[in-house]
Design a protein around this nucleic acid. Structure first.
Lengths: 260, 260
DNA sequence: CAGTGGTCTAGACCACCTT
DNA sequence: AGGTGGTCTAGACCACTGA
């Protein structure tokens, strides 16, 4: 059973979605929620903190929390996995494998993806399709820890992330760097767009709870297919603007990893 | 004076930056921190929650928190304001005004920026320069509440956001939609790139703590100038992927706003 | 099994907003 | 001045990790 504060947060969220607390209106006070749910104030505060974090409500000290808007719950997994995202949106995802081989990280990869030079990884390149139409070219390096596991999977259907999660690997953090690039000849052909047209590039490093990097990826979306959405607030800021030529954050991590 | 838990978080953060807790190593346990700082456990937990939120440490129940990496602190304001960001990066920002007039939101604007149709706003279009080189074209609509205030400002230097903040307007939330577009003839000329080259587009709605939208903007960056960075974690997720043709989140808000 | 983090309680005082 | 959220304390029990 999930924690009480999570249940309360979910209930409030549902109420917002149903329009019981319209946009611009106030949430009940912490005291009222304490009475309504019969819990301590700390528990109520944990619940509303979740809503704040997700940008459902805003507040300032001394005044009641105000509903900013219902936010479609999109889980971390859905951000992480193309397949899981596509399914949640009612689309049918698939993939065409361009390359899948285990090798060591070369200099060019290290530069492009920020993976540690020389590490043994699975180099996987695929075209991702939505309802049969190509929308993204994907290049992912899986850390040695999971490389052979992934290589043994069916790489054309289903979610690799999901299957790794089932095996006990946990994704905890992700760093994203988002910019725009022009489609090269190869990409243009794969995506069915003109050479030079704009692509949305998302480079990502995903880390386990122990701080071990599990994968590095470079996804390039057709500009007309996908938009990335970010919500941030004064209290919780995870967004930054970087100069394109800024220093790549060093990210080398030792430590052992063992699935449960 | 800032809160005790914020001081503790800042101290720990500093220690991580100084390398006292190297990447991959464990943070002291909550119990140890309680003794070290002479506070209750709840206070310590608030402090480490901040570090977790910012992605400095990761954890799983039962095991100590692990240092993921030092994170450059970038404030909400720096994300919000081109000027403040540029200065923090050691660059000199400036602007060239293309248009500045008060009018009502037209259908095209409403569609493009998500602003409510018919609202009276300041329509401000500028080219933004970094050390004299054009890197971004910006189109911002300022809500009627602040429109005349902004129009009276010097629009070529300094930060509008900063000056609004001084007047008591508080930015609390921002929604960002990020995608890629091709440069049109006008944009290409303004930015000094070839027509059709890739631009990184960031559309943003910024809201005050009371849920009132203060500005809508559409920023288009030269692809070689800027990258947007996002960090998210299993517990705190503010990132989402949207289909380009997905529904624009309705965002109409009443309620009064009054600067302090 | 000992250590550690996750959840929850009950109560206190203060800072800020609203009226 | 009364309501509301922000911070902090002290203690409890449980779930998970690691040796």
């Amino acid at each position: 059973m999930s924690a009480r504060y999570q249940q309360i947060a979910a209930e409030l969220r549902l109420a917002v979605d149903r329009g019981e607390y319209p946009i611009g209106s106030a949430l009940p006070s912490e005291g009222e929620l304490v009475l309504r749910y019969g819990v301590a104030r700390g528990t109520v505060r944990q619940a509303v903190a979740m809503l704040e974090q997700d940008g459902v409500v805003a507040h300032r000290q001394g005044a009641r929390r105000i509903v900013v808007g219902p936010v479609p719950t999109q889980s971390f997994s859905e951000m992480q996995s193309f397949s899981m995202w596509a399914v949640s949106q009612g689309h049918v995802p698939s993939a065409r494998v361009l390359r899948a081989q285990i090798r060591r990280v070369a200099h060019a990869d290290a530069e492009r993806l920020g993976a540690p030079l020389g590490e043994e990884v699975l180099d996987l390149q695929r075209v991702r399709l939505l309802d049969g139409a190509p929308v993204m070219v994907e290049r992912t390096l899986y850390a040695g820890l999971v490389a052979r596991l992934v290589l043994a999977m069916d790489l054309t259907t289903g979610s690799i992330t999901e299957r790794l999660t089932e095996r006990g690997f946990v994704y905890a953090h992700a760093d994203h760097r988002i910019d725009a690039v022009s489609a090269g000849v190869a990409e243009a052909g794969l995506l069915g767009v003109r050479r030079g047209s704009a692509l949305l590039r998302q480079r990502r490093v995903t880390t386990s709870p122990t701080g071990v990097a599990l994968e590095w990826s470079d996804d390039r979306y057709r500009a007309d297919a996908v938009t990335i959405s970010v919500r941030n607030s004064m209290s919780a800021n995870t967004l930054a603007r970087l100069s394109a030529r800024g220093p790549a954050p060093a990210r080398t991590v030792q430590a052992a990893e063992r699935p449960r």
